[in-house]
Design a protein around this nucleic acid. Structure first.
Lengths: 337, 337
DNA sequence: ATGAAAGCGCTAACAC
DNA sequence: GTGTTAGCGCTTTCAT
């Protein structure tokens, strides 16, 4: 037994497919004065009876609207991603939009399989992405989070780190000389690794010489970061401060420290990047650089873009600042005992 | 300028739409001996030139296949959900399927907006879900995680907790008399709260009398759990052991304890439910009850269901056991100092 | 080796 | 007030 269509419903109710379509759209007909209540009722009953559910693909092909928002999140376990998802979930509630997450996938290939009214891409760092995105933007509305890309048929969300990462490094070097950097191996390979660059610059400003063994690149996700942090902190002359290039990386570092019975921030201070809720809520609360009220504003923007007909492609900037919390406090604290 | 279609490509290449379709499908034609290499090349070039990208909705309406797998995950920040996502991501890689996550949404409404070849639903506890699911199963392949539902046109994944939760409680009551339960308020309201039930039964077996103030129901997500745990542990006569009804709840409890400068397991022992990777990797590693190798087997099953033509609706059972780790070890350990 | 054409389920002009 | 009908972009059978 195959799936019922409007045809099935129409036959059951003894009306045309057009009538069914109108009734089910809950819309009063554009010209004329509409469907008679009795007909409407009959159609509803018929739909109910045959168990009709609209075919989204057909509706999409006809209207060009899918009512879908796609969120491409490259590291779902990153609290940053979870914060995006949560904020979007709250924001779409009343807009009739369904948010779907494309997780840990290469959006470049996956996006061809599924379109949406608005697509958010959380990281587009590869060379050549610019053209692909411009291309994609012709068919879907695109919102890209990127520090380097310029809007080109799509919108760009941008962090304006400004001096905040320098402030974070200065904050660490004020009290420490053994400052390490924990970062994903991939991020070291992009042309201008901004966060890693800030680390190097911070050392230079403080007159601290670079140590190869204080750079800990990790592979993959939080597990990889955790392993790398354990290795970093287990070496003979471990660092007393860690600049982690993301909040989830920082959280992994703190977990690693605690595993090694090291006190945070007593034995090792940690600063992250992202200023996520999860970082703020953890114990010790995470010092981090990041934007204020980022997630809600992003979600709001995405909903507008999904709804809006207009498409003024713009740059939305979020200035960053350093949030000093317990994992790397203003003044040194004595080691717990 | 509107999006190019096969028509555009056909015109550009000077062939028919049928030829374009065949070339782009990379398929040799069923009857006859196929497309000539020169034509194929011309079509490819034309497609490239006009920037053609197939319209998935149109393809889906025609073929009935979307190559989409939908994962409805009610609490995305739960490591359980992340583990599902990760395992699925690895499993679909070669199958040409795109997994999309429906996060923290009510699948009952959202599912009507988007169909998929296979839909996984991680929790269907409401009364009346059975009919809705049976109904949905007529159009999409459905896989439901449920302890109570019986397969009815859809597959059921089931945890067989067996005596494992009793074992967990006995494990706690062997060393503790002040055993609390941290659980979501919602789960207390279902007819038979299995995990909470195991808590109560465990107390009874150990001859420990029930204390109202040792039941800490929380609202929402890990933040709610964290707050509830702080309150639970801050009271005048705090518990020395916590039975948390999910791994993420247990992790929140451990964070709360650490915030309050309590040692885990020295001051308070914690057991979770789910046996997630994240729980295993945290510090202290989380004692938990759950299945073995659950996530990979689930992912494998989902891929099979997305690919398979056959639809033998079955129950897949995962026996649980207690995994004793550091957060509630076999033998008591002295408090750190 | 290639093209013509039907039709998937749905919506929206337009006709009655 | 309701029905007819033309497609949306694509795949696939059947002719040529």
């Amino acid at each position: 037994m195959s799936r019922p269509t409007i045809k099935t419903v129409a036959a059951e109710a003894g009306v045309s497919t057009a009538t069914v379509s109108y009734v089910l759209a809950g819309r009063t007909r554009s010209n004329g004065s509409g469907i008679s209540p009795s007909t409407a009722e009959r159609v509803q009953a018929a739909a109910q009876k045959v168990g009709y559910r609209p075919n989204q693909a057909a509706r999409t092909i006809r209207t060009g609207k899918s009512n879908l928002m796609m969120l491409s999140l490259t590291m779902l376990s990153d609290p940053w991603s979870l914060s995006v998802s949560k904020a979007v979930g709250a924001a779409v509630a009343s807009a009739g939009i369904t948010p779907m997450i494309l997780a840990d996938t290469d959006w470049r290939t996956a996006i061809k399989r599924q379109s949406a009214d608005v697509i958010f891409i959380d990281a587009a760092a590869q060379v050549g992405d610019a053209e692909l995105l411009a291309e994609l933007a012709r068919t879907s509305r695109l919102v890209v989070f990127s520090e380097t890309l310029e809007p080109n048929g799509f919108d760009v969300i941008r962090s304006v780190a400004g001096g905040s990462m320098d402030a974070a490094m200065d904050h660490l070097t004020a009290q420490h000389t053994k400052v390490a950097c924990l970062t994903s191996r991939g991020s070291l390979q992009v042309p201008t690794p901004k966060r890693y660059g800030a680390y190097l610059a911070g050392l230079r400003r403080a007159g601290i010489s670079f140590r190869e063994d204080y750079v800990a690149p990790f592979e993959g996700d939080e597990f990889g970061a955790y392993e790398a942090a354990v290795a970093l902190l287990s070496q003979p002359d471990p660092p007393t401060a860690i600049f982690a290039t993301s909040d989830f990386v920082a959280m992994a570092a703190i977990n690693a420290a605690q595993r090694l019975k090291l006190s945070v921030p007593g034995d090792v201070a940690v600063v992250g990047v992202g200023n996520t809720l999860q970082g703020e809520a953890m114990e010790p609360s995470l010092s981090s650089v990041g934007p204020v009220d980022f997630f809600n504003r992003l979600a709001q923007f995405l909903v507008e873009r999904a709804t809006d007909g207009s498409a003024p492609h713009q740059v939305l900037e979020f200035p960053w600042q350093l949030f000093v919390r317990d994992s790397a406090p203003r003044t040194p604290i004595p080691i717990d005992h």
